[in-house]
Design a protein around this nucleic acid. Sequence first.
DNA 1: GCTGGGATCGCCT
DNA 2: GGCGATCCCAGCG
Length: 202
Amino acid sequence: MSTLHFLSLPTTEVATGLLGMFLVHETADGVTAGRIVETEAYLWGDPACHAYRRKTARNATMFGPPGFAYVYQIYGLHYCVNVVTGPEGVGEAVLIRALEPVEGIPLMQARRGTTKLGDLCKGPGRLVQAMGINKAMNGMSITEPPFQVVPATAYPAANTSFRMVTTTRIGITQGADLPYRFYVEGSPFVSFPLRKVTGEKK
DNA sequence: GCTGGGATCGCCT
DNA sequence: GGCGATCCCAGCG
C-alpha cells in the first residue's frame, strides 16, 4: 500500500497506523528524521477540530485532499504539524505530537538549543522546531521529498514492535473526553504518558 | 473594528 | 505545578 493510499484511510486508522512510521524532512542544513510515537485524531463533527465550524483561510488545508501538511500557529508563538486526512471537502487531520529522534540529531540539537535527547521532539511545538518545519510548509505534500511520512521498513533498525495506548487528547476543552490520542507504550519520548487511559491494544 | 481564547513551551518556584 | 509570552482569527456588533 502506498503512503498516499494509507493516508486516505479513515482518520483514526491513520492516527494509529502512523505510530511506528517515520517523519523525514530534508533541508539545506541536513536531514532530520524521527519515529512517530504519539498522535491525535481530529474528526469531522468533533468540536475540538479546527475545521468544526466551517472552512476558513486558516483551516483551508484541512479541507483539501489527504497527504498534505497542515501547519498552524498556537498561542502566538509555537507551531504544530498535522497530516491532512479524509477526502477533499472533509476537514480532518492527525496531529503529530511526539517523535523519537532517529536521524540528524546534532541538527535537531542545534535548532532546539539543547542536547538532551528527550527534549528534542517531545511535544508538537518542539518537534516542529527540531525538524525545521515552518508555517510556509502549510499545504505542502507530506508524501514526497523534501517532507514525507515513510513506512517503518525504511528504518529497519528502529522498527521494533510495541503496544499502543489510547487516551483522551491533550490541552483541549471541547471534546475532552473523546479517546482520540494514541501513543507507543513505554516510549520515553511521549509528551504526557500519564493521562486518562481509555484503551490499549496491538 | 474589537475582543477573547487557543491541539504550547520554558523558566520559575 | 504555575504562569507569562505573543499572534491569528472567529465571533459578535
